[in-house]
């Protein structure tokens, strides 16, 4: 997402990502060691492995697929834990590789409009704040729209991010119509020649049809000014979320044409395993992952690093 400038910084964030992921991944890695130490890959071992994968939020279907894949070439053979981990990591990397794509911002759009959506509490506003900081530091002309007019103090939260990053924030009072605000923000962004407009929205549960309709209205209103807007619709997901993430992606994708994902809170004890299941089912690009509270902790997503860390291997 942000330019990866300089190798020093790159190793910096890789180490950080690795450290963050390692805390969370040790269980899966240790589990594999537990199962496959001096043991053949038989039915019982496969079942245990499958359970272990499920326990990392990979989901029943994806876990079965991974286990079956492993059995194809190695059934009834002696396998070392290391071998299993490497093979699984390779499989997961292959699944994730196609979706690991940074957000491409087209400066010519003036502005490139990004609508940020998601259920409550996943970290939409924080993600926008971090994105704004990175993009502004990269020299882009950024504007923010405080479209969460529902939650108390959400507007103030975004305004503080605006002050920190020196980015203008288009805001109205709490309770204002979010679609109207989005429309005005786009107008102003055009007028002032902003290159990137990030629109925040209130968190909403995907099964609340009236709230989803509100979101569709925002999209409709943006299209009145610019047929191609929003150019990106980012769905923010919380890594702690279990299998419900699949449901969230399906519904948001259907109703507001989500174009990419951001996964937050990956520095916790949650493994974000549901990402693998998501890649399998929806094939939406994962633009970035959040691994901490600092502005620099929003990072591009690397399939291999994620997969190897998930399996407890050195990145």
């Amino acid at each position: 997402m942000a330019d990866t400038s300089g190798t020093a910084e790159k190793t910096g964030w890789l180490t950080r990502l690795k450290a963050a992921l390692r805390r969370s991944s040790s269980k899966l890695g240790e589990g594999i060691t537990g199962i496959f130490t001096k043991r053949k890959l038989d039915d019982a071992a496969l079942e245990e492995l499958e359970e272990l994968l499920i326990a990392s939020d990979l989901g029943v279907t994806t876990s079965a697929k991974l286990a079956a894949n492993l059995a194809k070439t190695r059934f009834n053979k002696d396998v070392s834990p290391e071998e299993v981990r490497t093979a699984l990591a390779a499989d997961v990397t292959e699944m994730l590789e196609p979706v690991a794509r940074p957000l491409a911002i087209d400066l010519a759009k003036r502005p490139h409009v990004v609508l940020v959506v998601g259920v409550n509490g996943v970290g939409k506003t924080t993600t926008i704040g971090k994105l704004a900081k990175q993009q502004a530091e990269a020299g882009r002309k950024v504007m923010l729209a405080a479209g969460d007019t529902f939650r108390a103090a959400a507007v103030e939260q975004l305004q503080i991010w605006g002050e920190r990053t020196g980015v203008p924030v288009v805001a109205k009072q709490a309770g204002a119509d979010a679609a109207g605000l989005a429309y005005e923000a786009l107008e102003r962004a055009k007028r002032e020649g902003a290159e990137l407009l990030l629109i925040d929205t209130a968190g909403r549960l995907h099964n609340r049809s009236e709230l989803m309709a509100e979101l569709q209205k925002i999209v409709r209103v943006l299209k009145k000014q610019d047929e191609t807007a929003p150019h990106d619709v980012l769905l923010v997901l919380d890594a702690t979320t279990g299998q419900n993430a699949l449901q969230q992606v399906a519904t948001f994708k259907e109703l507001v044409a989500v174009t990419g994902l951001v996964v937050t809170k990956l520095d916790g004890s949650a493994k974000g395993g549901v990402l693998v299941a998501l890649a399998e089912q929806h094939k939406l690009p994962v633009h970035a992952v959040g691994v901490g509270e600092g502005a620099d902790d929003l990072r591009p997503f690397s399939a291999e690093a994620f997969a190897r860390s998930l399996m407890g291997l050195e990145v």
Binding site: V119, D238, T241, G242, A270, K271, G273
Partner: peptide
């Protein structure tokens, strides 16, 4: 959160 996964 009721949506929490295995990490709960």
């Amino acid at each position: 959160d009721a949506m929490t996964g295995q990490d709960a």
